[in-house]
Design a protein around this nucleic acid. Structure first.
Length: 493
RNA sequence: GUUCCCAUCGUCUAGGGGCCUAGGACACCUCCCUUUCACGGAGGAUACAGGGGUUCAAAUCCCCUUGGGAACGCCA
């Protein structure tokens, strides 16, 4: 077992297509990506689809789409469109590498480092229960571990099924490696029993493919979640048996829920796709998850991927778990959103407005003006829906929060005066100055001032007493629309 | 149960023996800006889990306790 340090790093992200890409996976992908980009190396996407029962094509599609959305593009792996192999070290889908695993397993078998085990599930279960009854905790003891290979091969011919197990016997020692995130980590070899390499149907198991592929794909650094830390022992054993160089490992702490448990769906969105649907920007997702376990040397809170590529450094990776704080996440998103040029922001909110079938003016100047007004109120792209709704005539409603304002003594007079003056206005849209003047006129006619003047007009415009500034909002609205709204408000006063 | 990992404000974190009466960010509170609400600005409150060492000096190094997490699959 030798170690290797390469000045040309090759890292990988290896999702299993058994679900969506969640933020934990996204962060793992991001750190690997950043490490490769910072150090001029390659980022490889490998698909771990050896669990036939759970892996699906749709899920692979989804994971790939999410990575593309995040902008975490890989140098080798599957093509983002066709999902076909791209790169010189493929295939990159483990389900297409079965022959390779079989070959390596055969070598291990021949070298006596692995053996065929014919134990049935019932037998394994029985052994476990016996150990439990004795109050002891023991690893599986297979009666087949010392069978000569020929004998096992003979039995296989009878049609009996067997798994291939790694033989831990004779390996009693500590396995030590230096984790890039946590320093020296030591595992006693008896921490694991004889683990499975190949299932009885010939499919390989995670720890085995992982080692074979990392070696064959010339991976130099493995950054992955902490839950894989104990797996590292098994993998070290396989590296040793094959006499292969061991890559560097770095295990990142988990991302947790508010209750300090592993992030779960129940507490809110954890899937990248869902975050996207809720109106989060890819740049904000990346910014936020990067800071869950890594910090910028200058202490910046707002970073682009480009910024991160410049300064990413594994020595700043934090070994303790981090809670996914949705409130701060929203703030980060709001900052990214407000930093977007109007044209880009407008484009970004279109899918959300389309959900509500809103028809808004095509004029870019109008769009820019409206965005300038609404931006400070937007935390997610989805917020645009409620912000723009008042501008959409069909959707004008007087909200319950307006009730108190409608009950005020001068409200009725204010609304009537407002309606008449707007109706008398000569053009389709009024300017800010015209609005201010008109508002003064209402004041003169009714004697109402302060909030008694202001809030009723706001209700007549947007259906609620609080919100964006009227002098900016009103010029965005057509006269006919203002009149009809004023009438509706008047009817309720 | 066993093994491994982790431990600074409510949360994300800076810090790596003296620069720490512990810094930043989100959230919170107060004030300013504003004829509303947000945005923005200025302040404020809040943390080294506990106990032992080592040292002239410990948030920082070591040990123990406690707490949390992970893994112990023919899942990855």
């Amino acid at each position: 077992m030798s170690s290797k340090i390469s000045s040309h790093p090759r890292v990988r992200f290896a999702p299993s297509p058994t679900g969506y890409l969640h933020v934990g996976g996204a962060r793992t992908a991001l750190y690997n990506y950043l490490y490769a980009k910072k150090n001029g190396g390659e980022f490889i996407l490998r698909i771990e689809d050896t669990d036939e029962a759970r892996s699906t094509q749709e899920s692979l599609r989804g994971v790939v789409d999410d990575l593309v959305w995040l902008g975490l593009m890989w140098d080798e792996g599957v093509d983002p469109v066709t999902l076909k192999d791209v790169g010189p070290n493929g295939p990159y889908r483990q389900s297409e590498r079965l022959g390779i695993y079989k070959e390596i397993a055969d070598k291990l078998l021949k070298d006596g480092k692995a053996y065929y085990c014919f134990m049935t599930e019932a037998e394994i279960e029985k052994q476990k229960e016996e150990a439990k009854a004795n109050g002891s905790f023991a690893h599986l003891q297979s009666p087949y571990q010392d069978w000569p290979l020929e004998k096992a091969l003979e039995r296989l011919k009878t049609g009996d099924k067997a798994v291939v197990r790694y033989k831990t016997k004779g390996l009693e020692k500590d396995y030590i490696f230096t984790d890039l995130v946590r320093g020296e980590v030591k595992f006693p070899s008896d921490m694991v029993g004889d683990f499975v390499l190949l299932r009885s149907d010939g499919m390989p198991v995670y720890n085995f493919c992982c080692v074979v592929d990392d070696h064959l794909m010339k991976i130099t650094h493995v950054f992955r979640a902490e839950e894989h830390l104990p797996n590292t022992l098994r993998q070290l054993m396989i590296y040793e048996a094959m006499n292969w160089a061991v890559p560097e490992f770095g295990h990142m702490a988990l991302i947790l829920d508010e209750d300090r448990q592993k992030l779960s769906k129940r507490k809110g969105a954890v899937a990248c796709g869902q975050l996207k649907d809720e109106g989060y920007l890819a740049s904000a997702v990346l910014n936020f998850i990067a800071l869950l376990g890594w910090s910028d040397p200058q202490g910046r809170e707002l970073l682009s991927v480009e910024d991160m590529k410049q300064v990413f450094d594994i020595s700043r990776l934090n070994p303790s778990g981090a809670i996914f704080d949705r409130v701060k996440f929203k703030w980060v998103n709001a900052q990214h959103l407000r930093a977007l040029p109007n044209a880009d922001l407008w484009k970004a909110i279109q899918p959300f407005l389309a959900r509500e079938h809103m028809e808004l003016p095509q004029d870019p100047a109008w769009q820019g003006k409206s965005l300038d007004l609404f931006k400070p109120y937007m935390e997610t792209l989805a917020d645009a829906i409620e912000l723009y709704r008042p501008l959409n005539d069909k959707a004008y409603v007087i909200l319950p929060e307006a009730e108190e304002t409608l009950k005020w003594e001068p409200t009725k007079a204010v609304l009537a005066s407002w309606k008449n003056l707007v109706q008398a206005h000569p053009s389709d849209y009024m300017t800010e100055e015209e609005f201010l003047k008109l508002q003064d006129e209402v004041k003169n006619q009714t004697g109402a001032k302060g909030k008694h003047l202001f809030m009723p007009i706001r209700v007549a415009v947007i259906g609620k007493p609080h919100g964006a500034e009227l002098k900016t909002l009103v010029p965005l609205m057509k006269k006919s629309s203002l009149v009809s709204r004023a009438e509706q408000a008047l009817a309720k006063a």
